[in-house]
Computed example of a mutant assay.
Amino acid sequence: MRPGPRNLITDVAGLRVGNAHDAGLRSGATVLVGDAPFTAGVHVMGGAPGTRETDLLAPDKLVQEVDALVLSGGSAFGLDAASGVAEGLRAMGRGFAVGDVRVPIVPGAILFDLLNGGDKGWAANPYGPLGRAALDAADADFELGSQGAGFGATTMDLRGGLGSASAVLESGVTVGALVAVNALGRVCDDAGRFHAAPWELADEFGARGAPDFAPDWEPYGDRPPGSATTIAIIATDAALTQAQATRLAVAAHDGMARAIQPSHTPLDGDLVFAAATGARPLADPVWDALRLGHAAAACLARAIARGVHAAAPGGPPPAWAERFGSG
């Protein structure tokens, strides 16, 4: 397993990512859009999720493909970012055909960043325009860290951020992860060594080595219920059914648990979408699906560390680079 050429989720051909944020608001939105509709699934493991159109991703539902997936800050207000994306896609003529009408299918998930010190006293919800701006910015290349949905994100003791990573399997299948890290838990130890270190490739988040797991450590902090959440997308060019995409999302949660301690708490809304473009049929539907799940978990753990590692100064809390240096 090796990183793709960009080490981004957009190493999956046909996918683009766009980010938009408002520095005064200290929040933003991120969109994953395909050149064509793609199969998608979802799995929620946190106790306080905020979502849009996730019910239609169940394998027994009519619509089997989506046009885009959205990650946003703003708590429930941020769900409007998907409306901005849908408006932009409609203007492009994209969407599920119902007679002569096109309805873009844009599931989304949000994280809570309303208490991070930004100006939240808006007169009109800003997230629709942020979603549209993110769609307009969509490209194969994009920045990590304090970008898009990760702009105002935090962890227990460090600034959060937007992360991504990819891997190419021996079969030639590509897997990628995109994540906005806004966790109640911690992503590294007191020396800045990431919990995801065993899965690091090519020194992508500092090569600090294995962390001290401190088994007697207990979570601390005073965040109110529902004020955290790590939201992610796993993508692949494999041909998957909606049921298989859902299983891929389930497997990817292992990566979240490896990289964030604790994860999937009652106070987080931790969620993973899965996206499959269908370019590469699985030679072995059982073992290749298993390998995909393993790669997805490893990619997500790496993406989480990369997002925090790349966060820019501008807290509180401090960015990783402020506390531990730029290495």
Rank of each mutant, 00 (worst) to 15 (best):
A140I: 05
A81L: 03
G118C: 10
G84K: 09
P126C: 02
D113E: 08
Y127R: 07
A109H: 14
Y127Q: 08
N116A: 08
P107K: 00
D80K: 06
K120L: 06
P104Y: 02
G108S: 08
Y127C: 09
F142I: 04
N125M: 08
A97M: 05
F112K: 13
G78H: 06
G121M: 10
P126R: 01
G117D: 11
R94T: 09
F96W: 15
I105K: 01
L79N: 00
L135I: 08
Y127E: 05
W122R: 07
D141P: 01
L79Y: 03
G118E: 11
I110R: 03
R90P: 12
A134T: 11
P129Q: 10
N125C: 08
A91K: 13
G118N: 07
K120T: 06
N125V: 10
L89F: 12
L89M: 14
N125F: 07
S75R: 00
D119W: 03
F112A: 09
G108Q: 06
L115G: 02
D141E: 15
D100K: 06
P126N: 04
G74I: 03
L89I: 13
A123P: 07
G95K: 05
D113Q: 11
Y127M: 10
D136P: 02
R132Q: 01
V85H: 13
A137T: 07
V98I: 15
K120E: 00
A82W: 02
L114S: 01
V85G: 12
A82G: 09
P126S: 01
D113K: 11
A134G: 13
A86I: 08
I105G: 00
G78P: 09
F142M: 01
M92Y: 02
G128E: 05
A86F: 09
P126W: 04
G95V: 03
A134N: 14
A123M: 07
P107R: 00
A81M: 05
P107Y: 00
F142N: 04
A123Q: 12
D119S: 11
L135Q: 07
A91M: 07
A97Q: 14
F96A: 06
L79T: 01
G117M: 10
S75Y: 01
A123C: 04
A86H: 11
I110W: 02
I110Q: 02
G131W: 10
G131E: 09
V103K: 04
G78V: 06
R90Q: 15
F112M: 12
L79H: 04
D119V: 08
L130S: 11
R94G: 07
A124D: 12
